[in-house]
């Protein structure tokens, strides 16, 4: 098991009113991600606990790409990973941002 942490500054804060959202399930080849609007301004922190050690460089690339695409400013994202592939990680992150961007609480 490995714990990773990534800190980014997004281009702008993510719109929407939701305080938090959960997507996915911790299962083989899957992951859960908890999105919380708790950071100031454009900061974005992604914390990863993964069952599979040794893929820090891949996580770093996937998350940097995600921050650039979606500008998730203000979000702390905590991931529990059961060995998801990078494309699954990217889809879950996109799914969470879409829930958080909702205007309803």
């Amino acid at each position: 098991m490995e714990t990773l942490s990534f800190r980014h500054t997004a281009a702008h804060a993510l719109a929407g009113a939701r305080a938090h959202a959960l997507v996915g399930v911790v299962g083989s080849g899957n992951l859960e991600a908890l999105f919380e609007r708790v950071l100031d301004g454009n900061a974005c922190v992604v914390e990863v606990v993964t069952a599979v050690a040794g893929y820090g460089a891949v996580w770093s690339e996937v998350i940097a790409d995600f921050v650039q695409r979606y500008s998730p400013g203000g979000l702390r994202i905590c991931i529990h990973d059961g060995g998801a592939r990078p494309d699954t990680v990217a889809l879950r992150l996109a799914q969470g941002v879409s829930l958080m961007a909702d205007d309803h609480e």
Binding site: M1, L22, V25, V26, E32, L34, A51, C78, H80
Partner: peptide, 11 residues
């Protein structure tokens, strides 16, 4: 679960 190298779940 952490003692077994397994990621927990939030719920």
């Amino acid at each position: 679960l952490r003692q077994f190298g397994l990621p927990p779940a939030f719920d």
